[in-house]
């Protein structure tokens, strides 16, 4: 069996073991979170995207702990990631599967970056973004520009937070969004830095 096949199996194995929540409850709750953010930040869309990323970061930092802990307890082996391709596969096939029950595909792999393609997005069921307001004369009016909203931007924060815990500093961007009319949801992940492991210089032996 190919390596990616066993990763997929590990993901499904973990998904079978974790307690599930109602998917509609999940999607609706995320929706009301967005509504609340829009209210809080007065329809300032870049700031809303920003906050979603921050929220995601806090989630991701905890997610990775859970992933390792649960896999240990359930005897599921997570392959060690020697190169970026393997990291990407684990995020796509184990991370997304375990927490969301969907898997996504890896593409556009380079030395320093990869893209995750999400054909199914559990956050966006029931969702339709509002149209931009158009003024009477056809010009765009002062309403918020909804095409800028990255509805599922929380994913970017989650990935950033989770990978930071395993010494990868990455930048994530939601570059394709089916809610905005793109063909597929695409998250671009770019590695900025591999944080050196071990204790800081203060602790070095004399």
């Amino acid at each position: 069996m190919s390596k990616s096949g066993s990763i997929t199996a590990a993901g499904q194995n973990l998904w079978a073991k974790v307690p599930k929540a109602n998917s509609e409850l999940f999607a609706l709750t995320y929706g009301s979170l967005i509504t609340e953010l829009i209210r809080d930040y007065d329809q300032n869309i870049p700031e809303i995207n920003n906050q979603l990323d921050r929220i995601g970061y806090s989630i991701g930092v905890r997610c990775i702990d859970e992933l390792f802990a649960k896999s240990e307890v359930n005897g599921v082996q997570i392959p060690s990631c020697r190169e970026l391709r393997e990291t990407a596969e684990v995020v796509a096939k184990i991370g997304f599967r375990m927490f969301l029950g969907v898997s996504c595909d890896v593409g556009k792999l380079t030395e320093k970056s990869f893209s995750l393609y999400l054909s199914e997005n559990p956050l966006s069921i029931f969702v339709e973004l509002p149209q931009n307001e158009v003024g009477v004369d056809g010009s765009s009016s002062h309403g918020p520009d909804w095409t800028q909203l990255k509805y599922s931007n929380v994913y970017c924060g989650v990935i950033r937070g989770a990978l930071e815990q395993v010494n990868l500093k990455v930048e994530c961007e939601f570059v394709g969004d089916m809610l905005q009319g793109d063909d597929v949801n695409e998250i671009k992940v770019e590695v900025k830095e591999v944080i050196a492991d071990g204790a800081g210089e203060d602790y070095q032996e004399e």
Binding site: E24, L25, L28, G31, S32, T35, E36, F126
Partner: peptide, 16 residues
């Protein structure tokens, strides 16, 4: 704030 979010979710979910 949480109560308001819960209201939104409960309203829609009970319809489903």
């Amino acid at each position: 704030k949480m109560e308001r979010m819960g209201y939104d979710v409960g309203y829609r979910l009970s319809e489903r």
